[in-house]
Design a protein around this nucleic acid. Structure first.
Length: 433
RNA sequence: GCCCCCAUCGUCUAGCGGCCUAGGACACCGGCCUUUCACGCCGGCAGCACGGGUUCGAAUCCCGUUGGGGGUGCCA
């Protein structure tokens, strides 16, 4: 039994594409689940793709996802000799010929080229439908086909796991591999495409495909991994959200289904919400920090207060970026009043009464969540109102909005002085002062 | 045009010839809980594209139709 060797071979074309991330993941799951090895190979045969920042971007994204590799990354731009040797050999064996300065591989006009794809079954191409293709450009650089075939062979790759968009290059790569003297074929697995609402391949143009943009909105790496694993694969026990280690154990390439999968942000966020809810309180408030830093009231934030208050919005947060905006009133000197919320809550006949009674009661009430709760409930009772209605004017006075974290916990965290002051401010505003 | 691929609820999937009156999740719609919103819980809506075979029996196997998609660069 030889060990499996897989590779993830991205072309560094900017930020890591969701589809590439999913390919990296399926390679990683296969390698880790079979005690195999995973190599990162940068396909930068094209001169424009060798820019360091593009490559760093790939490293950063994979690192964020915690997809790790065995050994140092392989850069194709550093292996040009290997490719040249191969092309020269093909040339001298008359398997290739010079055409307009480039080198083309001779494709037989008869016969077929085929392989047994793990996810698609047998795929067959008639050789007559494949044209003689370029293996070395006029400028002397190797093309994708050459580099791909040489490296997969040279690096002893046993499993080629990649996107379905590469199915049609496979026969060419197989021909080159044979021309290289290889007796065997790696196991091929062509993963289904990730598509958008229009069922078209996710594209930079139309779709939000950059992995980073999800990270920037506060999708957790584990949630992203978990969700991506569900695109083209599903556990037979129906438990979709689960620890990555379990996914590693359950995942099998043979179970990947061949039909395209739509990227559903709603579901991603639902999965992310589950991950957020399962975080420890401190972990959650720490995780919020980068987004707190983006708030205009960032400088007013007190870490202890943040830790007390963050749990109040934890189960109301699907992506981390949604967290801080719900907390602004805890740190702002005066809450930012939402006009439509104000109009809805304050224009009732009871609103002034509620504010007034609340002010009086809150001046002396025990400053505990239970006592505050009871106090406002009693005020509502006296006016024949349910607490749900009665709390509205107070909520708007304190938080500026109609919806938000639990009111009494919020009052408690804010403190008596701040609360009373905000009630008075609301009364003044109501009176038109 | 040519080549290749795909086809289970709106979406992601389970299913690999009888366990299916097709299961779960997201979304959606009701209800409960409730201090708003959420969370949680309960319930509902909704699918094997179509037509032929094969078989005692087909979502599962085969063929065709239709509908989608991908590729057709000296990009990868």
């Amino acid at each position: 039994m030889s060990t499996n060797r897989l590779r993830f071979a991205p072309a560094p074309t900017g930020s890591l594409h969701l589809g590439s991330a999913r390919t990296a993941l399926f390679n990683w799951l296969t390698a880790r689940g079979t005690e195999g090895q995973l190599i990162l190979r940068i396909e930068d045969t094209n001169a424009e793709l060798t820019r360091p920042e593009l490559i760093d971007n790939i490293y950063r994204s994979l690192d964020w996802l915690q997809i790790d590799f065995d050994g140092e990354p392989v850069r194709q731009s550093e292996r040009t000799d290997l490719y040249n040797d191969a092309v020269e050999r093909w040339l001298s064996d008359d398997l290739a010929y010079v055409d307009d300065g480039a080198v083309r591989f001779r494709v037989p006009s008869e016969g077929t080229t085929s392989w047994d794809d793990v996810v698609r079954g047998k795929v067959v191409f008639e050789n007559e439908n494949i044209e003689d293709f370029v293996v070395r450009r006029t400028d002397g650089t190797a093309t994708f086909f050459t580099a791909n075939a040489v490296d997969d062979f040279d690096l002893g790759i046993t499993h080629v796991v990649r996107g379905e968009d590469l199915v049609n290059v496979t026969p060419k790569v197989i021909m080159l591999r044979k021309a290289l003297g290889a007796q065997d074929l790696p196991t091929f697995a062509h993963l289904p495409l990730i598509v958008n609402e229009q069922r078209k391949k996710l594209s930079k143009r139309r779709d939000d495909v950059a992995l980073e943009s999800y990270r920037d909105r506060g999708v957790l790496a584990d949630a992203m991994i978990n969700y991506l694993a569900l695109l083209g694969w599903g556990p037979s026990d129906d438990i979709e959200v689960r620890p990555i280690e379990e996914i590693v154990k359950l995942f099998r390439l043979e179970d990947v289904n061949p039909s395209p999968a739509m990227f559903d942000v709603k579901k991603l966020e639902a999965v992310n919400g589950e991950y957020i809810r399962s975080m420890e309180y401190e972990e959650f408030s720490d995780a919020l920090l980068p987004w707190i830093a983006d708030q205009p009231w960032n400088s007013l934030v007190d870490r202890d207060q943040l830790c007390r208050v963050a749990p109040l919005v934890q189960e109301r947060t699907r992506v981390l970026a949604e967290g801080p905006p719900q907390l602004d009133f805890f740190f702002l000197e005066t809450p930012e009043i939402d006009q439509s919320a104000w109009d809805k809550a304050m224009t009732t006949a009871e609103a002034p009464l509620i504010l007034d009674s609340t002010k009086t009661a809150f001046t002396t009430v025990d400053w505990t969540v239970a006592a505050l709760h009871e106090s406002l409930r009693a005020i509502g009772d006296s006016l024949g109102m349910k607490l749900g209605k009665a709390q509205a004017p107070v909520r708007v006075a304190i938080t500026g909005r109609l919806v938000g974290p639990p009111l009494f916990e919020s009052l408690h965290a804010l403190g008596r002085d701040a609360v009373l002051e905000r009630i008075v401010q609301a009364q003044n505003r109501l009176a038109g002062v």
